[in-house]
């Protein structure tokens, strides 16, 4: 009996297992082949529509950076002075990013509270606020900025509004996910002593989610600095606009291009670094 139970039976589960593995491998290899085919045809299509081909352009890839860098190298003595010259525009870009993060963050907080189950002021309107956040998130900031420039004239205000609109949608989603995981007991406790909705949120929920929310807002600030630079390039204002003008001058102004590149690069790396450390401290309570 024992021999029968332990000696004969294993042969079948093993073969069944191997068959399962074979089938899985077959499926995943089919999926992989499909994926590769999709990628290949996609690249083919994209290349056909491109002005220049991939292989033709490859040797030129380094030509432009080399041209710029060599000119900047001969005028390297100018670089620190040029960088100082553009500090004002950099400050404008950073201000745009910071103000839009603050404004976007505040409206994202409100939207998140209104669109989180169990917390919402008007539970029936939760889907409405969710779709609203989806729509705000989907609108490309450059487009909002260009339309606003037409109405408001130039300046940083269209850029601030454009980035803040997008940020409130993007942050709102993350905020509401964080709020969903919050402990409901403090809020119920507050409700039991007759606290209003605003009081319940301010004293029961916000203290719980504040570290997470701040961490998301910092991450968004990083993204907004980049967005604000791009907006300057496409629209107007800030370091992006300086870069565009310097590029349009072309040869002779490449030292300026490099100075702006450097300024932008160093700022982004620095902000990334600081916000990385702050976020670590906020979410894990660790002091680096």
């Amino acid at each position: 009996m024992v021999d029968l139970a332990f000696g004969l039976a294993p042969a079948r589960p093993q073969s069944a297992y191997l068959a399962l593995v074979r089938r899985r491998r077959l499926y995943s290899s089919i999926l992989l082949i499909l994926f590769a085919a999709l990628l290949a045809t996609g690249f083919r299509l994209a290349e056909n529509r491109n002005a220049g081909g991939f292989l033709d352009g490859l040797p030129n890839l380094l030509q432009f950076p080399a041209e710029i860098l060599s000119e900047a190298w001969t005028n390297r003595a100018n670089l620190p002075g040029l960088m100082l010259q553009h500090l004002g525009s950099l400050l404008e870009t950073l201000n745009i990013a910071a103000v839009s993060t603050i404004l976007g963050g505040v409206s994202a907080g409100a939207l998140a509270l209104l669109s989180t189950r169990d917390l919402a002021r008007w539970p029936r309107l939760v889907p409405v606020f969710r779709r609203l956040m989806d729509a705000l998130r989907a609108l490309p900031d450059v487009v909002i900025a260009l339309v606003l420039i037409y109405m408001l004239g130039g300046g940083p205000v269209p850029a601030v509004i454009a980035i803040a609109v997008h940020a409130s949608g993007a942050l709102g989603k993350l905020f509401s996910e964080a709020a969903e995981n919050a402990d409901l007991r403090p809020i119920e406790g507050l409700a039991s002593v007759g606290a209003t909705w605003a009081q319940r949120m301010a004293f029961g929920l916000i203290p719980q989610v504040a570290p997470n929310w701040l961490s998301y807002a910092l991450l968004r600030f990083e993204i907004n600095v980049r967005a604000s630079a791009i907006l300057g390039f496409v629209g107007q204002g800030g370091i992006g606009a300086d870069l565009k003008i310097a590029l349009q001058w072309g040869q002779g102004k490449y030292d300026q291009v490099v100075a702006i590149f450097l300024l932008l690069f160093l700022t982004i790396v620095l902000i990334d670094h600081i916000s990385d450390r702050l976020r670590l401290r906020l979410t894990k309570g660790r002091r680096p």
Binding site: A51, F54, G57, F64, I230, L243, L264
Partner: peptide, 20 residues
């Protein structure tokens, strides 16, 4: 750190405008 904007500008010079 080198922003999408800068990569785009470098790549446009090499490959010309288009989806690729």
């Amino acid at each position: 750190g080198t922003d999408a904007l800068i990569w785009t500008l470098i790549l446009v010079r090499a490959f010309g405008p288009g989806p690729l």
